[in-house]
Design a protein around this nucleic acid. Structure first.
Length: 886
RNA sequence: GCGCGAUUAGCUCAGGGGUAGAGCGCCUGCUUCACACGCAGGAAGUCACUGGUUCAAAUCCAGUAUCGCGCACCA
C-alpha cells in the first residue's frame, strides 16, 4: 500500500510477466481426459512465415475472448494453434530472394530449392506465433501443428489416394486459370475480377469466297488473333446469314478460317461477330469443341508469344504484343478503330497480373459430400454469423465446379502419383482415355517398389488441399474424441469458399460429421478513408508498434469495441487510444481502492446504502447483458457494456458517492459496508473483463489480494460466485439513487450556467417532493460539490433565485449577487418551452381515440404516466415563473 | 445482368414500431486529495428519397438514388 504506484498503467511491465506465469502454470493446456464439457477452436493457421497484421489481431483476440470466457464458464478448453506452409506465397518470396542473387529455382534444382525454402522457414517462421503470444492468446502451444508435419503430410496424401480410389480425383486436359508469373494453374477462387481499362479494337477480316467483302470484328485481345481458328456469329443474325459456311482470311499468319454459327454469340455486342481463339479463352474453347476447330496455342507459359505467333512476335510479352498486333492491322488497313473500353479482367490474386486461360493437363477433384455440406448450413446445424453468409455459401455450393488441385510449384505436398517412364510421353500428351491412364499409373502414399522405372508427378497440391483437413487432421484420436467437432470457428468471409466450405465437405467425408457448430465471420478492416488495408498502400498499421504503444490489452479492447456486427469495420488508431485510456481508468480506480484502509473484519458492516444496492444491481444487470451478448457473438456490445458500466456507472457515480464514507471520520460500519461493496464490484468486474483485458485484470486481481495461493484470475469460475439478490429492495434503491443522480445533474447544470466552478461550495435549498430525501442530502451535496443542502418545505425564495425542478423536489441556489430576474425568467421559459412541447406530444396521443382503443394497454398507461409527469413538472416551473414575475 | 449489404450528430458507428443513442471531435469551465490517458457542463440529427401498412414508422413493406461486396464466359 505504501509503494508509489504510477498514475498510468504501464503494460510493458505487466503483460509479458503474466503471460510467462500462465505458461509456467500450464493454464492453456487442454486435457482430453477431463470430465468438463468440451469447448474447442482450431486457429485459422496463418502463413508460417507471415507477420501479424490487424486482421490477425482482431481474429485471434476474438478467439481468445471465446476461449477465456469458456474456461471461466467451467469448460475444458482446447484452442489449437498452428501454421500453414502457404505454397505459392512462400515459394514466391524465396524465388524473389533467389532472383536477387541472380539465380532461379530451376538452376538450383528441386531438392536444393526445397532446402532453401526450409531454411528460410527456419529463419523467418514462428515470428507470428511469438506475436500471437504477445497478444495474450491462450492457445495450447504444446499442440501447435504445421501443415508440413510428417503425420499431417501423411494424412494429406492418404486423402488424395482415397479420393482417387473413389474416382473423385481425376486428371484431365482442361482450360485452367494460368498465372504467367507464378507459372502455375490456379483454382477459380484464386482469380479476382477487376475492372480494367483497355481498348476495344474493331478490325476486319476479308471473306475468302467474296474478295472485297469484310466481316467486322470487335476484340479486346488482338494479340491472340494468330491463334484464331474460326469466326462465329449468332445463327439467327440476319446480317451474316449469307456468310455461314464460308471462310475468311486470318491476316497473320495468313490462313483461311471457317465462319460458324453459335448460340453463344451476343448479337448486341460489338459487331455481333466473335473471333474464336480456342487456346486462349474458355468460351472460345467450348465453341471450338462444338465446331471441331483447331487449337493453336500462341503463348508460352510465362505470357510471352511463341513461334506460332510469327517471328516478329516471338518472345514478346502479351501486353506489348497487343499494341503491336493492332499496329500491324492498321498497317494492313484492317483496323477500323480503337475504342476506350473497360471490362472485368481476372487477375492472379498472388502475383497481381491478368491470368491467362490455358489448356493444360491438371488434377481435379469432384467435391465429395456436397449435399451434406450444403444442408448442414442451410438447415442450421452449422450456424453462420452474420447469417447472411448462408445465402452466399448456398449459392456457391449449388454451382460448385470441380477443383483444380494441382500446382506447378515445388513447395508443398507433392502429388503421390508415379508414371512408368516408358509410357510417360503418352500419358503426358493427355490423349489417352481415363481408364487407360488409371491402369498405367501408380497412386499411393508410397512409391512403387521398382522406383527407378517410374517418375513421380512434378506437381504439388494446392495449399487448401491440406488446410481443408485442418479441424481434424490436427488432432489424434483421443483428442478428437473429446474436442471434435469443434465449437467455434472464427475467420474472414473472404475465405468462405477457399476454406470454410471445403472443411465442411472434408469433415463429412472423412469424419462423418460437421467440423464446427458455429462460424463467426469477422469483417474486412478498412482504413479511416474506407480503403482496404494493404502493404502497397502503406495504410496497414505496424501491429507491434501498436502493441508497444497501447499495450496488448488496450489494442484488444479498442478493436473489440468496433468488432464487426456485419459490415466492414474502419480502423482508426484513436480506438486503440480509447482502449489504453480505459485500461488506465481501471488502473486508477483500483489505485483509489488501494489507498483506502484494508477491511476491518471486527466491524459489522452497516446495511447497504441505496448507492451500494444500486451499483450491485447494475452489476447484476451487466452480467445478464453480457451473457446475452456472448450468446449472440456481439463482441462490440460486450465491450461497450463493460466500458459503460465501469466508467459511467461505477466511477462517475458510485465511486463519487462514497468518498465521504471512507475517510477516518466516517462511521466504521458504513466504511466497512462501503469497502465490502467496492471489493465486490472489483472482484466481479475483473472476472467479467478478463477475457477482453487478460493481463491487466490478472495484475489487478493480484494487487487487490483476490488471488488465492497458486491460483489465477483466468481460472476463476464465474458461476460459483454470483450472489443471490433481494430484487425488491434493490429496485427501490435503484429508483432512489437515480433520483439523487438526476437532481445532481440539474444542480451541476445550475452551477455551470452561473459560471460557478464545479467545486465551488454554494448554498442550496431543497423544497422536497419525496419523504426520504433527508437521509441522502449529504451524498447529494457531495455529488453536487457543495457544502450542504438545506431541506425546507416552507421555503419562500426571493425573486430571481436560480432554481430547478428535480426528481426529489424544487432546488434553489440562493446566492448573493446572483439575483437576476431577467436571466432567470429566460432560463425558466426555455425549460417551460421544452416541457410544453413534450406535454403536447402526449396530449395529442391521448386525444386520439384510435390510440386509446387500439394501442396495447401498457403503452397507453405509460403515455398517461408520462403526461402526468410532464404536467407536474410544468406546474412547478410555472409556479416558479409566477413567483418571479408576480 | 442476378444476389447481398449499407445510407442515423462534424467523423466512426450502435439501435430498431410507442421520449433519437455511444465514442471521438467541437465549445465552456476545472491542477476537486484515483485518474488531464482526467472531471463537470454544453451545442449538435427532416434517422438518404418517394409511396404504402399501422392508432403510431427512423424502425416493417415496396420502389428510387448513391456507395460497397459477391456471383455471372458479353468477346
Amino acid at each position: 500500500m505504501s509503494e508509489e504506484i504510477s498514475k498510468v498503467y504501464q503494460p510493458s511491465e505487466v503483460e509479458s510477466q503474466w503471460y510467462t506465469r500462465w505458461l509456467e502454470a500450464s493454464c492453456f493446456k487442454a486435457d482430453e481426459n477431463s470430465d468438463r464439457e468440451a469447448y474447442s477452436i482450431v486457429i485459422p493457421p496463418p502463413n508460417v512465415t507471415g507477420v501479424l497484421h490487424l486482421g490477425h489481431v482482431l481474429n485471434n483476440t476474438i478467439q481468445d475472448v471465446l476461449s477465456r470466457r469458456a474456461r471461466m464458464k467451467g469448460k475444458e478448453v482446447l484452442w489449437l494453434p498452428g501454421t500453414d506452409h502457404a505454397g505459392i506465397a512462400t515459394q514466391a518470396v524465396v524465388e524473389r530472394a533467389l532472383r536477387k542473387e541472380g539465380t532461379t529455382r530451376r538452376e538450383l534444382g528441386r531438392e536444393a530449392f526445397l532446402d532453401r525454402v526450409r531454411q528460410w522457414k527456419d529463419e523467418h517462421g514462428g515470428i507470428i506465433i511469438k506475436q500471437l503470444k504477445r497478444l495474450g492468446c491462450s492457445c495450447d502451444w504444446d499442440r501447435e501443428r504445421y501443415t508440413q508435419d510428417d503425420d499431417y503430410v501423411e494424412r494429406v496424401l492418404n486423402v488424395f489416394v482415397d479420393l482417387y480410389n473413389k474416382g473423385l480425383i481425376y486428371r484431365g486436359k482442361r482450360m485452367v486459370n494460368w498465372c504467367p508469373v507464378s507459372q502455375t494453374a490456379l483454382s477459380d477462387e484464386e482469380v479476382i475480377k477487376r475492372p480494367s481499362k483497355g481498348s476495344l479494337y474493331y478490325m476486319r477480316y476479308e471473306i475468302v469466297e467474296s474478295p472485297g467483302e469484310f466481316l467486322e470484328i470487335a476484340t479486346t485481345r488482338p494479340e491472340t488473333l494468330m491463334g484464331d481458328t474460326g469466326v462465329a456469329v449468332h445463327p439467327k443474325d440476319p446480317r451474316y446469314q449469307k456468310y455461314l459456311g464460308k471462310h475468311c482470311w486470318r491476316p497473320f499468319p495468313r490462313q483461311q478460317i471457317p465462319i460458324v454459327a453459335d448460340e453463344h454469340i451476343d448479337m448486341e455486342f460489338g459487331t455481333g461477330v466473335l473471333k474464336v481463339t480456342p487456346a486462349h479463352d474458355k468460351a472460345d474453347f467450348d465453341i471450338g469443341q462444338r465446331h471441331d476447330l483447331e487449337v493453336i496455342d500462341v503463348l508460352n507459359p510465362d505470357g510471352t508469344l511463341n513461334a506460332l505467333a510469327g517471328a516478329e512476335f516471338e518472345g514478346m510479352d502479351r501486353m506489348e504484343a497487343r499494341e503491336k498486333a493492332a499496329d500491324k492491322l492498321e498497317e494492313l488497313g484492317l483496323l477500323i478503330k480503337r475504342e476506350p473500353y473497360e471490362n472485368e479482367v481476372g487477375f492472379s490474386e498472388r502475383a497481381n497480373v491478368p491470368i491467362e486461360p490455358r489448356l493444360s493437363l491438371q488434377w481435379f477433384l469432384r467435391y465429395p459430400s456436397v449435399p451434406e455440406a450444403t444442408g448442414s448450413v442451410l438447415q442450421g446445424d452449422i450456424t453462420f454469423r452474420p447469417q447472411r453468409w448462408v445465402k452466399t455459401y448456398g449459392h456457391w455450393m449449388e454451382n460448385i465446379q470441380d477443383w483444380c488441385i494441382s500446382r506447378q510449384l515445388w513447395w508443398g505436398h507433392r502429388i503421390p502419383v508415379w508414371y512408368p517412364k516408358d509410357r510417360l510421353a503418352e500419358i503426358q500428351s493427355g490423349e489417352l482415355d481415363e481408364d487407360t491412364v488409371r491402369s498405367l499409373i501408380h497412386v499411393d502414399t508410397q512409391p512403387p517398389a521398382d522406383a527407378e522405372a517410374w517418375t513421380q508427378d512434378e506437381d504439388v497440391l494446392d495449399t487448401w488441399f491440406s488446410s481443408w483437413l485442418w479441424p481434424f487432421a490436427t488432432m489424434d484420436e483421443d483428442t478428437r474424441k473429446k474436442f471434435f467437432p469443434t465449437t467455434d470457428l472464427v475467420t474472414g468471409p473472404d475465405i468462405i469458399f477457399f476454406w470454410v466450405a471445403r472443411m465442411i465437405m472434408a469433415s463429412y467425408t472423412f469424419q462423418g460429421e460437421l467440423p464446427f457448430r458455429n462460424v463467426f465471420f469477422t469483417s474486412l478492416i478498412r482504413d479511416s478513408k474506407g480503403r482496404k488495408l494493404s502493404k502497397s498502400l502503406g495504410n496497414s498499421p505496424d501491429c507491434l508498434k501498436l502493441l508497444d504503444k497501447y499495450g496488448a490489452d488496450g489494442v484488444r479492447f479498442g478493436l473489440l469495441r468496433i468488432a464487426p456486427t456485419g459490415a466492414d469495420i474502419r480502423y482508426d488508431e484513436d480506438r486503440m487510444k480509447e482502449g489504453r485510456n480505459f485500461a488506465t481508468k481501471l488502473w486508477n480506480a483500483v489505485r483509489f481502492r488501494q489507498m483506502q484502509t484494508p477491511v476491518d473484519a471486527s466491524v459489522t458492516p452497516a446495511a447497504p446504502s441505496i448507492y451500494a444496492l444500486d451499483i450491485l444491481g447494475k452489476l447484476d444487470a451487466l452480467e445478464d447483458k453480457l451473457e446475452t451478448a456472448y450468446q449472440n457473438y456481439r463482441f462490440n456490445d460486450i465491450a461497450n457494456h463493460l466500458y459503460e458500466f465501469f466508467w459511467s456507472q461505477f466511477c462517475d457515480w458510485y465511486l463519487e458517492s462514497v468518498k465521504n464514507d471512507l475517510g477516518d471520520s466516517a462511521d466504521p460500519a458504513v466504511k466497512a459496508m462501503t469497502l465490502e461493496t467496492l471489493d465486490r464490484v472489483y472482484r466481479r468486474f475483473l472476472m467479467l473483463l478478463h477475457p477482453f483485458m487478460p493481463h491487466l485484470t490478472e495484475e489487478l486481481w493480484d494487487r487487490l489480494g483476490f488471488a488465492a495461493e497458486g491460483q489465477f484470475l483466468m481460472n476463476e469460475d464465474l458461476a460459483a460466485t454470483r450472489p443471490p439478490w433481494d430484487t425488491q429492495e434493490s429496485a427501490q434503491a435503484q429508483e432512489r439513487a437515480a433520483a439523487i443522480y438526476e437532481a445532481t445533474g440539474r444542480a451541476r447544470n445550475l452551477k455551470a450556467e452561473y459560471q460557478l466552478g464545479a467545486n465551488k461550495a454554494v448554498r442550496f435549498v431543497l423544497k422536497p417532493t419525496v419523504d426520504w430525501v433527508d437521509e441522502e442530502t449529504d451524498t447529494l451535496a457531495l455529488l453536487i460539490g457543495t457544502a450542504g443542502i438545506e431541506v425546507r418545505a416552507d421555503y419562500q425564495p426571493e425573486k430571481g433565485v436560480p432554481a430547478a425542478v428535480t426528481a426529489v423536489g424544487e432546488l434553489y441556489m440562493p446566492l448573493e449577487g446572483l439575483i437576476d430576474v431577467a436571466e432567470e425568467t429566460k432560463r425558466l421559459e426555455k425549460e417551460i418551452g421544452k416541457v410544453t412541447k413534450e406535454l403536447e406530444k402526449t396530449d395529442k396521443k391521448l386525444a386520439n381515440p384510435n390510440f386509446v382503443e387500439r394501442a396495447r394497454p401498457e403503452i397507453v398507461d405509460e403515455i398517461r404516466q408520462r403526461r402526468t409527469d410532464w404536467q407536474k413538472r410544468l406546474e412547478q416551473l410555472e409556479e416558479m415563473l409566477g413567483n418571479l414575475v408576480g
